[in-house]
Amino acid sequence: MTTVKHDIELPSNIPELLLEKHANYLISYGTNKDEYNYSQTEHMRMSGMYWGLTALDLMGKLEQTNKEEVLEFIKQCQSDSGGISASMQHDPHLLYTLSAIQILCMYDALNVINVDKIVNYVKERQQADGSFAGDQWGEVDVRFSFCAVATLSLLNRLDAIDVEKAVQFVLKCMNFDGGFGSKPGSESHAGLIYCCTGLLSITGHLHLIDADRLGWWLCERQLPSGGLNGRPEKLPDVCYSWWVLSALTILGRLHWIDKKALIDYILTCQDVESGGFSDRPGDMVDPFHTLFGLTALSLLDKNFSLKPINPTYCMPEYIIDRLGLKPSRLDA
């Protein structure tokens, strides 16, 4: 075997999937609101809730969550501009607007917010070159393009923006390796490749991707430990199991990685005491990695007791079906 400089050794013991522990970890995560970690993550609360709730839904535990409390929170996070913030009194942003809409779709409760104002907020973020700024302060990134397009498609209001221009901008971010970076000129990164592939899947433009070139780059993310990194010569991390796998699935090339080796890697990233997943074995767990560990397992093997996940929206498939959405994929 060729020596790889940036990788880890897996422990010999590979634990079972500890669903009960993960559910308990997520349910108790938000109960002590004075807890240090909780207050330190207030500025991304809305996404944190989306990570936790989606993970719980995949495990069939959504009914154990406090729906009313969540809906009330989201309602209070919608600002006059129409956008939704990470938390009360924080500023609205496309990142948290998408997270909120994803939660509302899961709870089938879009009626608790003003949808027209959301649509307007998203629409106003589109720039002349088709890109999207995350908020009124003008930071541009394809993550925000994805947030905008995903939000509007979940609301069935894609007509509000110039989709072709949005696609044009994404194309400008395509690189020599077939991948995408955060803006024109930026290096390819698995997270941003997910955003761009997802956007092109929603708008029906996957033919613009050189799928063999990008697919190869993506499957080269798998390291001898079985884990996936997000860029060449980087360490493996559970969250890339999602960004890489979802893109490969959309491109119809999930079979290009070794599923068994990746499953083993993900399972060793569980905290067998407290529940939850971390980026690498032995690190601290958090809801973000817990969601992406579970979504990856859901894509990899139908025999885990997890609901199927939709690779484009990172939401349970049954919700995407309920909304009547059909994001395109290259394998069908």
């Binding site: 330190q40 980026d279 690498r280 032995g282 690190d283």
Partner: peptide, 30 residues
């Protein structure tokens, strides 16, 4: 949380850390 190793600590260390963190939470909120 990326690359933060889970460390085992003694009860005493845990107690000090807890107090420090509680103070930080109070400060943040104020």
């Amino acid at each position: 949380m990326h690359g933060r190793v889970k460390v085992r600590t003694t009860a005493e260390q845990e107690e000090i850390k807890k107090r420090e963190r509680a103070a930080k939470v109070v400060q943040y909120k104020a």
